[in-house]
C-alpha cells in the first residue's frame, strides 16, 4: 500500500502532535523548550532529534504520520502563505530531491500545454 501505511500509530510523536496543535501554550513552548515538550510526551531521543532537525525523511522512517510532518515544519516556520515556496516546503525538496524534480518537470509540462 501507500506511504501512509508506514505510519506507526503508537509513536509518541504522533500522540504529541494532536495536543500541540490544540494548545497555544505548547505551541509557544515548541520554540522555547522543544526538548521539554518532547520529554513531556515521551518521545525517544531519535524522535526528538528528527523533529529538532526538521528531518522529513527521518520522520517518515520513524513512523510519524505523513500528515503531521508539514505541521511539525509549520510550527517552526509559521503557517501563513504556505505555498510551494514556503520554507516548510523547502525542507521537503531537500528530503526528496527526485520527487521534487519530477514535480518541477510536470509543472513545466503543464505550463507548455497551457494548463
Amino acid at each position: 500500500m501507500g506511504n501512509v501505511d508506514r505510519c506507526d500509530k503508537t509513536l509518541p510523536t504522533n500522540e504529541m502532535m494532536y495536543h500541540v496543535r490544540r494548545d497555544a501554550t505548547l505551541r509557544a513552548r515548541w520554540l522555547s523548550d522543544l526538548q521539554g515538550v518532547a520529554r513531556q510526551f515521551g518521545l525517544s531521543r531519535e524522535e526528538y532529534e528528527a523533529v529538532r532537525d526538521k528531518d522529513v525523511r527521518r520522520l517518515h522512517e520513524l513512523g510519524v504520520h505523513q500528515y503531521y510532518v508539514p505541521q511539525i515544519l509549520r510550527l517552526f516556520y509559521g503557517a501563513a502563505a504556505n505555498s510551494n515556496a514556503h520554507p516548510a516546503l523547502e525542507a521537503y525538496k531537500r528530503a526528496y530531491p527526485e520527487e521534487a524534480a519530477r514535480s518541477e518537470r510536470l509543472q513545466a509540462e503543464l505550463e507548455k500545454r497551457g494548463r
Partner: peptide
C-alpha cells in the same frame, strides 16, 4: 494528492 508524503508536490492528472 499526497499531503505530507514524499510526493507532496505531485498531482496525478
Amino acid at each position: 494528492h499526497e499531503p505530507g508524503g514524499p510526493r507532496y508536490f505531485w498531482v496525478d492528472e
